[in-house]
């Protein structure tokens, strides 16, 4: 009797907690299809006018293009450098491994507001403020830890004797790498790449400091949208970001299950 009651309370609490977690995320979807000029709930009418507005106003779709460009280049760069680091780490002795790993985790541990403040003056000196290369470099640093973590996880558990076996059977180092090491590491590299993309695509704080009229990312545009614009265009942008996140999450799950 008491057990049933306890389970009932626990299930009820779980339902409420799930609602608490998911509500603020999903609420942007119905709001984005409203016909009105301001946010109302329940939304009145059904129209795609805020999506049209999003793709007509250059400050909005332009920021989407900038964000995509920065995120794609960041992903390539961070995945390449991060995978190399993870491969190097796997061959280091334990103590050195811990120390070097900690070094590469630093950009994840240090609060982004500090990274943003620290990068500002060197970026100004190098002429990187408000440029796409500047954003790519900053985001690559922030994304690197996630690639290192994900590739290392696979590299640490990999049986390196397989590579030796391939070599002793006559494979050149390059062939052994391409046909043995790389396929084994592939899931970790893919997971790292997804995190790198998301890190860059979603990043606000550093972008607020190092982007400008020359290169504004979508999160920065949303930041000013939320603070200075009441129109549901922010809801439309939010809904687009939500779709991207869901697709990436689905891809991640698919890769994990394989």
């Amino acid at each position: 009797m008491t057990k049933g009651l306890g389970n009932g309370i626990l299930s009820g609490a779980t339902g409420l907690l799930c609602l608490f977690l998911i509500m603020p995320t999903l609420i942007v979807a119905p709001i984005s299809f409203t016909q009105t000029d301001f946010i109302t709930f329940p939304p009145r009418g059904f129209s795609g006018r805020w999506y049209e507005a999003f793709f007509e106003r250059p400050e909005w779709y332009g920021s989407l293009i900038t964000s995509t460009m920065v995120a794609v280049v960041t992903t390539l760069l961070a995945t390449l450098l991060g995978s190399m680091i993870a491969l190097g780490l796997a061959r280091l002795p334990r103590r050195a491994n811990r120390l070097v790993s900690f070094f590469f985790l630093l950009p994840m541990i240090v609060p982004t507001i500090i990274t943003a403040a620290a990068l500002y003056s060197p970026f100004a000196k190098l002429g990187l403020v408000a440029t796409v290369p500047g954003l790519v470099l900053a985001h690559t640093i922030l994304a690197l830890p996630f690639v290192v973590i994900n590739v290392s996880a696979v590299a640490q558990s990999m049986d390196w004797r397989m590579v030796n076996a391939a070599r002793s059977l006559g494979a050149t180092p390059l062939v052994a790498f391409l046909r043995v090491t790389l396929p084994v590491l592939a899931p970790g590299i893919a997971a790292g790449a997804i995190f790198a993309f998301l890190t860059s695509f979603d990043e606000v704080v550093v972008a607020l400091f190092v982007s400008g009229s020359g290169a504004t990312t979508l999160p920065v545009q949303m930041w000013s949208g939320i603070r200075f614009e009441i129109s549901p265009i922010v809801a439309a942008a939010s809904c687009l970001l939500l779709v991207v996140s869901c697709l990436l999450l689905a891809l991640f799950w698919f890769l994990k299950r394989k």
């Binding site: 609602l19 977690l21 995320t25 609420i27 942007v28 970001l241 939500l242 999450l249």
Partner: peptide, 27 residues
């Protein structure tokens, strides 16, 4: 799903969602 979708969604989206839910004229 209820944990991971928000976790993977942009911080600004969720913050904006909270404004929609919590403001004086909100949900």
């Amino acid at each position: 799903v209820c944990i991971l979708i928000p976790f993977w969604t942009n911080l600004l989206v969720r913050t904006y969602g909270w404004i929609i839910l919590l403001n004086p004229q909100g949900v």
